[in-house]
């Protein structure tokens, strides 16, 4: 922990709230403790139990989980009729590396708008970061001086890895061949997404948040992901092979992930079931689908929502190389025995 950075984190949180309040967003305080947390195959909730005499029929106890994001509650609130809402609070993810960019308890900001798409999300994100950075009296020239870059996933794969993605979208074998040509390994069990990530993570992602000679940040929105990589997003009406998802990269950090949100309960149920199957095939536990969430979905309208890592923004603005320096008492400080 670095006390100066912890103080700065407090200022950043205040400025984020001020930005969204000024823009007419309403802050929600959604539950941290839920019966059915998100079922994304590669996220693992932390589990606990709730006990109460009111639960007699089920021997006084029920399984409960901590949220990995406030997404389900936020979408249900949209479905109840709210518009322009945000939530800023701790979320919990188990099983991630404590590598300086992750902590099992981290501050997640999410905001949602009805009748909106990726364009509005990118604009909100860019304006919010400028607002926070400019008010902190820290000079971050590259955050403030230029518009954030926008690149589709296809453009980024072409620019950084010289791969034409579109002909490979439905062709795992052809992609596997390209992956081998790029010096990577291919396993029979690798899915299309796995193969994509082998090239993307080695050749594309490390460059996205930097200018060409890596001397300054170049904030970059990556958008329009292959449809399989966006379980909660609407598909692009102009090209159904892509989904309306965006991520923001600055320097070496991935700061935000947003969707034009899927509101079709039939399609959503299908994707949830596929995800649950994938969890099962990975040997992970599964739990029932959230029927209340699915029932509310059609009333949500064409909403868009962004999830934003607040601790990582603080790292960026404070010039801290590790999340452990910006949060008071990180997992490493809590759970790892002190070094001699």
């Amino acid at each position: 922990m670095n006390l100066e950075n912890v103080k700065r984190r407090s200022q950043v949180i205040k400025r984020i709230r001020a930005f969204f309040d000024d823009q007419g967003f309403l802050e929600m305080h959604t539950p941290r403790l839920v019966a059915l947390p998100g079922q994304e195959p590669h996220l693992d909730p932390l589990w606990t139990e709730v006990h109460s005499p009111s639960l007699q029929a089920t021997s006084y106890k029920l399984q409960a989980g901590l949220i990995t994001s406030p997404e389900y509650a936020m979408k249900r609130l949209l479905a109840e009729g709210l518009d322009k809402i945000y939530d800023l609070g701790s979320c919990f993810r188990d099983g991630e590396p404590w590598d300086g960019t992750h902590d099992p308890e981290f501050l997640l900001l999410e905001w949602y708008r009805r009748d909106a798409g990726l364009e509005e999300l990118m604009k909100d994100t860019e304006e919010m970061i400028r607002y926070v950075a400019s008010s902190l009296l820290i000079t971050h020239y590259s955050l403030l001086s230029q518009p954030f870059r926008r690149l589709t996933v296809s453009e980024a794969m072409k620019q950084y890895a010289n791969v034409d993605l579109e002909p490979l979208l439905d062709d795992r074998e052809a992609l596997a061949q390209v992956v081998i040509e790029h010096g990577q390994t291919v396993q029979p069990t690798d899915t299309w997404d796995d193969l994509f990530f082998k090239i993307f993570l080695s050749e594309v992602e490390p460059s996205l948040g930097w200018n060409d000679d890596r001397t300054a940040f170049q904030p970059t929105f990556l958008y329009n992901y292959p449809a399989s990589m966006a379980a909660l997003a609407r598909k692009d009406s102009k090209d159904q092979r892509f989904a309306l998802r965006t991520e923001l990269y600055i320097g070496d950090l991935e700061l935000a992930n947003g969707f034009a949100e899927l509101a079709d309960p039939v399609e959503q149920r299908k994707r949830f079931q596929e995800e649950r199957e994938l969890r099962r095939s990975l040997g992970k536990n599964t739990w029932p689908l959230d029927e209340r969430f699915l029932k509310a979905l059609p009333s949500m309208g064409n909403a868009a929502g962004m999830a934003f890592g607040v601790d990582r923004l603080v790292m960026l603005l404070a010039g801290a190389s590790s999340i452990n320096d910006v949060i008071p008492f990180s997992a490493r400080e809590k759970f790892v025995p002190e070094e001699e």
Partner: peptide, 14 residues
């Protein structure tokens, strides 16, 4: 080396 979980994706080692 670095462990990476690309935006809700599977876990990789870069």
């Amino acid at each position: 080396f670095q462990h990476v979980n690309p935006g809700k994706g599977a876990a990789f080692v870069r």
